[in-house]
Amino acid sequence: MKTALPLFIITVLVTAAIAFIHGLTEERIKTNEHAAYTAALSALVIGIPDPVFSETHETGNRTGVVSYTLVTSGGEFAAVVINVRFMGDQGPASVAVAASTCGSVLGVKVTSHEETPGLGANAAGTDFLSQFTDKSGIFNVVRTANARIHTNDIIAVTAATNTSRAVADAVNEALRFASQLILKFYAEILAEG
């Protein structure tokens, strides 16, 4: 008991110190995370003037479309940002896809991944992701060497075909979800007359 007491006292003191620092930094960490999130969203919906983001709606899914955010511009519904969680080549990854109200891609960003730097991670780079911009429909990943390039063909990153496919599939899933969401939105407007 005599030896356990100092351990107990020190644990309590250290816990108190941690709680104090946690209290000091909590607000700042939240602001940072929120700022990083809106900055990421703003970079995705680059063609839309003065975007205003709604709260994030969770779908409750653990994989696939996990959440989405509605974007308005001047009070008008302008776009939707969809977060998709999927399996990359090396581990779980997530991607944010911004779609306009006519269902075309405004921007794609890989928000987290565990791909290998220099290989799979290149499929999270802007060179690869900018291929999706302004296109709609279903994307198909090809390697340059063995295919004719169609509008919806996405050229895979060299040495990262699997990761490229996984990203393209996630974008397809996001667009499918976006089109349903947009249809539902216009159906409601029509119903209201």
Partner: peptide, 24 residues
């Protein structure tokens, strides 16, 4: 007798503090 657990607790405390400061 309990020096190692005490050292570990103190170290863990400072690591947590550094983690929060970096995050903030």
């Amino acid at each position: 007798a309990v020096r190692i657990p005490i050292f570990v607790v103190i170290i863990a405390g400072f690591v947590t503090i550094v983690e929060f400061l970096l995050r903030a």
